[in-house]
Design a binder for these strands. Structure first.
Lengths: 328, 328
DNA sequence: AATTCATTCGGAACCGGTTCCATAAATAGT
DNA sequence: ACTATTTATGGAACCGGTTCCGAATGAATT
């Protein structure tokens, strides 16, 4: 590999002069020409390690994701990647396969690699997280979950769920099942539920019952079969599109027509919800845009600019075939 | 940040001794104790850049992917990640958003970052690729596409398609539409088609017609509508599950029942194909396992061990609801 | 002509590790 | 007891950059 010293020798100048040429110091036109020529010929490119060693930092942003095989994750990553590229930063992705332990571990690993900042697609923020994130002296940005100690970009789960609740009411559903997930996940488990409940609770002639499942469609199928059997709702509001997909499958398995016999809604706006039949009504989140924002904010933080503690990304209620209007 | 020199001073020994302690040279029990203590107290961890600068290499494997939002990509990445972690290598993912240009660009960027090896989830291998991959002196492994110049892990597209063809015949379909993609993609566009054709062509009383679309479900919907209108097949064999999803949607839009009026098959084994109704018959590829293999092979290459030029990953024909047996 | 100032450049130190080499001390061999 | 080996350690060089400092040159100012 050709080094700066080689270039210097070949051009008949000192290392420092070459470095100045590369980084824009004062160099005479003639020397510029000489060095330029040699650089061209050799295809020289500086050693990143030597640079980082001296500079004590990199232009790499680390992003920690709980899983790779999720629509939300992919879209967010695409958004981050897109934007970081524009800002001339490099993205490195670190997958934790849903292990909180590994999440902590990866925080330290990234810090050790001297990334300029860390974006964490969080599912929950534990005390260990807080400790780790404070210990390393690296800018942190949470995506998807809010925490008072850190900056974050979050989806407006509460508002979206509230809007969805209003829509469900407008379709005259009066026997509602809400199929959510555990409260450890504040955004999905708590905010969505609360937002939805804030819209539908205490309405006259309206009954809402809460059920709980996991993020797996498989579990959602079984739970939905139970719900249909025991509660016979006119609509099932699911906390994610994957759960909605499971609910839809369960409806078929029970011989129910969607939406005639049972309406179903989801959260997320996964592409597939529009591709299947019936297409699913859902609260769409703009994950890619959220990724864009996250990347921009992160770079601002790296450059020590001020940013809002919390930035909300947009959402939209997409009305499709899986919800019917009732006239009873 | 605490450096090896700090540790040395605090322990009252030389830098070289600390380095030897860390990397296993000969150090007396007493000095070990002294250094150990200081390392514990300070929480020292070596500077990666300084190490890499000296070693002129890293333990990072770069993986270039055409897109993040695909089942095949995610699963493969999960497989690679899983395995590399076990082998104590670090994975960095580089997304090209389906731009071939960026693919080339990223090859150079990764090389510049001195990754130990590059895994390329290829869609097509152009001359520019070959040039770039030869220029950088880094071990290369292709996944998903075969090329005589490089090592690769590929899905057995031809065989899988052949098996699927046999299955389709066994269900007595005699008017078959094959909906493929352009031949630039050797694996998906050519191998699958050839494999399928090898099973069904020249059968008496069997007609097969080839149609072409893109990887987008949206395009598949339109193409399928045409096919239904013009060709009226009893089955549409789609080159990917996404295309099959589009075909399914088009069937509904045309008022056809699947599988009663029209059967549909896909390729891939995406999770969602089992989750929807009707579930889709598909040639499932084991992407995660392929990722595992790729990671293992890559590490072997890095260590200059011999590996097979081409490794095939497994497949399985999964028979589900979307294909009906004909009795006419 | 003498002084000042800006421009250009080389030399050396530094970033934080690893490794080679020489030396000293400890152990073994006869 | 004396030489031959090991083992333990420190010093220095090196990896490939950046940056500080001071010297040389030449133009501008008086």
């Amino acid at each position: 590999m050709v080094t700066i010293a080689d270039i210097a020798k070949m051009a008949g100048v000192a290392k420092s002069t070459v470095s100045r040429y590369l980084n824009g110091g004062s160099v005479s036109d003639e020397t510029i020409r000489k060095i330029e020529k040699v650089v061209q010929e050799t295809g020289y490119s500086p050693n990143k390690f030597a640079q980082s060693l001296k500079a004590k930092k990199t232009n790499i942003i680390g992003t920690i994701v709980p899983r790779l095989d999720s629509y939300a994750t992919s879209q967010t990553l695409i958004g981050i990647d897109e934007q970081l590229r524009d800002l001339e930063y490099q993205l490195i992705i670190s997958n934790t396969s849903q292990s909180l332990e590994r999440e902590i571990e990866n925080i330290y690993i990234l810090a050790q690699q001297k990334v300029a900042g860390i974006i964490l697609l969080a599912t929950m923020v534990t005390k260990k997280h807080i400790k780790a994130l404070h210990e390393i002296k690296v800018p942190i940005l949470l995506v998807g979950q809010e925490n008072e100690e850190f900056h974050s970009v979050i989806h407006n789960d509460y508002q979206a769920a509230h809007s969805l609740g209003e829509y469900v009411l407008s379709q005259r559903h009066t026997r509602i099942a809400y199929l959510g997930v555990a409260k450890e996940d504040i955004a999905v488990g708590v905010k969505r539920r609360e937002g939805f409940m804030s819209a539908v609770a205490d309405k006259v002639d309206t009954e809402v019952k809460y059920f709980e499942t996991s993020f797996k469609s498989e579990d959602a199928i079984h739970k939905t079969l139970e719900i249909i059997e025991q509660y016979k709702p006119s609509i099932i509001v699911c906390a994610t599109d994957n759960i909605a997909l499971g609910a839809l499958k369960a409806a078929y398995m029970s011989g129910l027509q969607v939406p005639e016999d049972l309406s179903i809604t989801g959260f997320g706006g996964y592409e597939v919800t529009d591709l299947i039949h019936p297409s699913i009504t859902t609260a769409k989140f703009f994950y890619k845009e959220a990724g864009n924002i996250a990347a921009k904010n992160m770079v601002k933080m790296v450059n020590k600019e001020e940013i809002d503690k919390v930035t909300f990304s947009k959402y939209e209620i997409i009305k499709r075939e899986s919800v019917d209007k009732r006239f009873n």
